[in-house]
Design a protein around this nucleic acid. Structure first.
Lengths: 351, 351
DNA sequence: GTGTTGTGCTTTATCGATTAAGCACGTAGA
DNA sequence: TCTACGTGCTTAATCGATAAAGCACAACAC
C-alpha cells in the first residue's frame, strides 16, 4: 500500500516515493530510472516504469520547478489597456499559436493579464520574480509602456510580438507594417484609381499605429502628386472608425478611398458610410488591416492586409524556447510576410 | 550584499533568505513577519517589510506551492476537438471572465488545451496529477468525453461550464438551453407568424446540441399543430449551416423560418440564402444562438439568444474558488438567464 | 591473493517557503 | 528568591524531485 500524501483539498497524490516504494528502491533510483540518467539496471528500470504507469505517476510541477529552477511554463502577458482588451479576437489567434508551440514541448501556458489596479510595472514584475514562468511573450504593448523595458532588462527571456524600435536588443516577431500599409494604400491608388484618400490611424502611442500611418503617407508621396492624403486619428475601435467617417462626411469634402489602420475601424466606418447612403465600394473604396475574422463576415467583405497572428505567436514561442535554452543564433528580429486579402470593399470583382 | 541565487537562465533572484539576511534575522523570521504569523516584534516586522520592498521580493511560486500543497493557479481545460477549437471567439469571453475572477484573487490562469496526440484521458490527468493547478474549469466538453468523468472523479476541484446531466454531482454553471431555444423558436412563431420551420442542430454529442433541439421541438409541439418543424443535423460550423440551407433549397420545400443552434451556422445559412436569391428576413426569418460577436456584424444582423459566456466564466471561477476553499453551501448547479437579442434577420423592424 | 574497474544502488544535500518546536531572556507574581 | 509565563527569535523538519557523492559487491587482471 503506497503511502499517498494528500493535498490540501484531500486529494490523494502519487509521488515519486510511492513509485519507488512499490518497487522496493529509493526515490533517487526511481528518479534516475525515469529520467534515463545514472546507473540503473534494465530490470529495475523496467519495474519502475511499470509502477509509475500503474500508479499514474506524474511529477509534481512544484517539486520539479523548485529543484530545476525552471517552471516548465511560459507566460503570455497582455497589457489590459482600454484599447487592447483581452476580449479581442486577435488574442485567440495568439493563444492558439502559443498553445500549439507550447504543447509540442509539453510546456504550460500561463495567461497573465495586467490589472489596472496594480501598477503596470508591478504587474510585469510579479511574473518575473515569482519565477512562475521561464519566459514571456508580450504583445500589443504601447511604445510608452515603462514596464516593458523593465521586463526586458530584468533578464527574463522575453519575446515581443510587434515592432519595438525603442528596444533594439529585444527579440521580436512581427510584420512590416509600413510596407503593408503602403501596399494597401497603393491598391486603392493603382488598381482602383482612387485619388482622394483618407487614413484613419491607430493609436499613435502604439508602433503599429505609427507605422501604418507612415506607410500610408509613403504611398501618397510616391504617387507624385497624383493622389492626396489626409489623416484622422483613431484608436483601433469600431467607434473611432465610425466617428472618423461621420466627421469626414460632415465636412462635405470629397473622399473616394479610406485606408483604415485596422478592420474594427473599417467596420465602424463602413456602417457610417452605409448609414449616410454612400455606396461601398461604389462611392468610396475602403481597406482595413488585420483579417482576424471580422473583415470576412461583413457586407461588403472588407479588403484587408492579413497579419498572421497565429503564426507570429507560434514562432515567437519557438524563439522564446531557444532564448530560454540559450541556443540563440537566430536574428533578433523576425519579420513575417503580409498578404493582401481582396474582398468587396475596395471595388474588386467578387472572388 | 545579499547572496542572490541565480536561475538556470542566469537571472538573479531574490529569495526570502536575501531579505532576512539584509535585516539580520533568519528566513523563518522573515516568513513570519511577512505572513503576519508567529511572534515577531513590530520593529523587526517593519524592517523586514522594508527590506522586502527594497529588494523587490516576490515569493517563489514553486517553493510556496511545494510547501503549501497548492499552486495558486487554476486551469482552463479546453478539449481541442475538431468542432470546438480554441480559436473561437467564445473562448475569449470565457478567458476574459476567468481572468477577471482570478486576478481579483491573485491567482494564475493556466491554459490547458488537450492535444489530439496524447490520449484524451491522459491530457486531463496531466493537469490533475502534476498539481500545477488547484482546480479546473472545463468547457465545451462532449457528453461522451470519458476524460471528463475521470477528472471529476479524481477529486480535483472542477467546475463545468455548460450542462452535464450525466454528471449530477459536478458543480456547473450554464444556461437553460431548452428554454432559450424554445423562446427563440417561439419568436419566429408568435411574433413573425412563421409556420414552416427548420432547426439546424448542433452536434448531438454535445449537450447544447441536444437541448437546443429539444427546445425547438417543444415550441413546435406547443403550437398545437399550427406550425411544422423539421430537423437537420449540423455541427456548429459555418459550413454546416451553409450545407443545411443548400440541401433545404435543393429539395424545394417551403420554409419560412430557420432556427440555427448557433450563430456560426446561422451565418453560413444566411450566406447560402443570399446566394440563392432568398431575402432574409423577407422570404425566410432566421435566428441564431450565442451572440459571441458574429451575429452583430453581419448583414442583416442575426437575431439571437445571448449566452452570457463571460459572466458564466466569471461565476464558474468564483465557484471554483469556493470549492477549493471547501466553503461550499451554494447549489451545485447555477443557471444564468439568457436574453433574446433582436436584430434584423427575424423580420423585426431595425432598432 | 591483491589491486582495479565497473555496476547498482543508497545516502545526502539542495531548491524556497513555511511552521512546529525549542531556547534564551525578561518580567511578574507568590 | 524562586517559579511561571510571555516575548522574540532560532533550529529543524517538511513539501517532491534531482544529482553528486558514497558504498557495497562482483568481475577481472596481474
Amino acid at each position: 500500500m503506497p503511502r499517498n500524501t494528500r493535498t490540501s483539498s484531500g486529494r490523494p497524490s502519487v509521488t515519486l516515493k510511492d513509485v519507488a516504494e512499490r518497487v522496493g528502491v529509493t526515490s533517487s533510483a526511481a528518479s534516475m530510472a525515469l529520467g534515463g540518467h545514472g546507473r540503473i539496471s534494465e530490470k529495475t528500470r523496467q519495474a519502475i516504469r511499470e509502477a509509475a504507469a500503474e500508479l499514474g505517476y506524474v511529477p509534481s510541477s512544484a517539486g520539479r520547478a523548485l529543484r530545476n529552477q525552471r517552471s516548465g511554463a511560459v507566460a503570455l502577458i497582455v497589457p489590459d489597456t482600454s484599447q487592447h482588451v483581452l476580449g479581442h479576437s486577435y488574442f485567440m489567434h495568439v493563444l492558439t499559436g502559443i498553445s500549439a508551440a507550447a504543447n509540442a514541448r509539453d510546456v504550460q501556458v500561463i495567461l497573465s493579464t495586467t490589472t489596472e489596479e496594480a501598477g503596470d510595472v508591478a504587474a510585469y514584475q510579479r511574473v518575473v520574480r515569482s519565477r512562475s514562468a521561464d519566459g514571456a511573450i508580450v504583445t500589443s504593448a504601447a511604445v510608452t509602456d515603462p514596464g516593458l523595458e523593465a521586463l526586458v532588462a530584468s533578464g527574463l527571456p522575453v519575446v515581443l510580438i510587434g515592432n519595438f524600435p525603442y528596444l533594439p536588443d529585444a527579440v521580436s516577431v512581427g510584420i512590416d507594417d509600413v510596407a503593408a500599409s503602403r501596399r494597401a494604400t497603393e491598391h486603392l491608388l493603382d488598381v482602383h484609381g482612387r485619388t482622394e484618400l483618407v487614413h484613419v490611424t491607430g493609436p499613435l502611442d502604439h508602433q503599429t499605429g505609427i507605422d501604418r500611418r507612415i506607410g500610408f503617407l509613403d504611398a501618397i508621396e510616391a504617387s507624385g502628386g497624383r493622389a492626396h492624403g489626409r489623416l484622422l486619428e483613431g484608436d483601433f475601435s469600431e467607434a473611432a472608425g465610425r466617428q472618423a467617417v461621420e466627421s469626414l462626411l460632415g465636412r462635405g469634402t470629397g473622399v473616394d478611398g479610406i485606408v483604415f489602420a485596422n478592420d474594427d475601424m473599417a467596420f465602424g466606418g463602413l456602417q457610417a458610410l452605409k448609414a449616410a447612403g454612400r455606396s461601398v465600394p461604389g462611392d468610396v473604396s475602403i481597406v482595413g488591416f488585420d483579417d482576424f475574422g471580422l473583415s470576412r463576415v461583413t457586407t461588403p467583405g472588407i479588403t484587408t492586409m492579413r497579419a498572421p497572428a497565429e503564426d507570429m505567436a507560434r514562432r515567437a514561442t519557438e524563439r522564446l524556447f531557444r532564448v530560454i535554452d540559450g541556443s540563440g543564433g537566430s536574428p533578433d528580429r523576425l519579420t513575417l510576410p503580409v498578404d493582401l486579402v481582396v474582398r468587396d470593399s475596395c471595388g474588386c470583382p467578387a472572388a
